[in-house]
């Protein structure tokens, strides 16, 4: 295993993150604050508690997930797309690195950044609503696994994309709708039966549900369902990445 090689990529990517830390953090923190003002205070004050959880507190796990999903996909996709775009990927490809090591470096760095931002959003939320985390370890599990899985997805997008438009396309057309309809701002139990069933096909529902459970011991689906689903997504992404590396798709001509 070329540990130093993995570390070189990881450190390089983290360096890029830290150089732009201000803007990396400013935007998610700002949008969280806006969400709290609009949904938490303005609308939330007129909303009933959901499952006994005040609305302002109810949306916190969903908001964190929203940010973490978006950040994971965009960080990881950009991280691998950029060297493909500038041509510096030649060095990664000609180095004695296995594909697994390349993924560990890029996805590791993207996931680390997502977790950091998730924690920052959580801390921001503390200013607005009293928070209670019933199961910190489960919370950490969901936060980390979501970051990893969606960074893997981002990596796949970054390899597939052959232009900046495509890089934006999937997050815009797929990730954003899925996260908004994933029960971040409501419980899917509030939906009519038909839309409830449709929602169950949305992977984000399971993430938000499991994550919310770790805060309030209350989720839309059972904890184990959430755990199974997230591990399934991780596996699916790993299989696709395995295929990419076997064929050299997007990387080697």
């Amino acid at each position: 295993m070329n540990i130093r090689g993995i570390l070189a990529i990881y450190t390089f990517e983290m360096g890029r993150t830290l150089r732009t830390l201000g803007q990396s953090i400013a935007s998610p923190v700002l949008s969280t604050v806006l969400y709290f003002i609009v949904f938490g205070s303005a609308i939330g004050s007129r909303m009933q508690a959901i499952n006994g959880i005040p609305y302002g507190a109810f949306i916190v796990p969903g908001l964190i997930m929203l940010t973490v999903l978006g950040q994971s996909v965009s960080n990881a996709s950009f991280g691998i797309y950029f060297p493909r775009f500038t041509g510096t990927i030649y060095e990664i490809l000609s180095a004695p690195l296995s594909f697994v090591e390349i993924v560990l470096g890029y996805v590791g760095a993207a996931a680390t950044k997502s977790v950091m931002i998730g924690v920052i959003v959580l801390l921001t939320a503390c200013f607005f609503v009293p928070l209670h985390i019933a199961h910190p370890l489960w919370m950490a599990f969901f936060l980390i696994m979501t970051s990893i899985t969606f960074s893997l997805l981002g990596f796949i997008i970054g390899i597939w994309a052959d232009g900046f438009e495509k890089l934006q396309l999937i997050p815009l057309l797929v990730i954003t709708p899925l996260t908004f309809l994933g029960g971040s701002f409501y419980s899917i139990n509030m939906l009519p039966p038909f839309w409830y069933k449709v929602s169950l096909a949305n992977p984000v529902v399971y993430l938000v549900s499991g994550f919310r459970w770790s805060f309030y011991e209350h989720g839309d689906v059972s904890l184990m369902t959430s755990v199974t689903m997230i591990l399934t997504f991780t596996l699916a992404c790993l299989i696709i990445i395995g295929w990419i590396f076997k064929t050299g798709y997007g990387l080697k001509k």
Binding site: I3, R4, G5, L7, T11, T86, G87, T88, Y90, I92
Partner: peptide, 24 residues
């Protein structure tokens, strides 16, 4: 390689050190 491709925002020292790291 033939094409000039470098990480514009890195320093010379860091980019060369990075390359060494990649090779383990």
């Amino acid at each position: 390689p033939q094409e000039l491709s470098t990480d514009s925002f890195e320093t010379v020292w860091n980019t060369v050190t990075f390359s060494r790291g990649l090779f383990g």
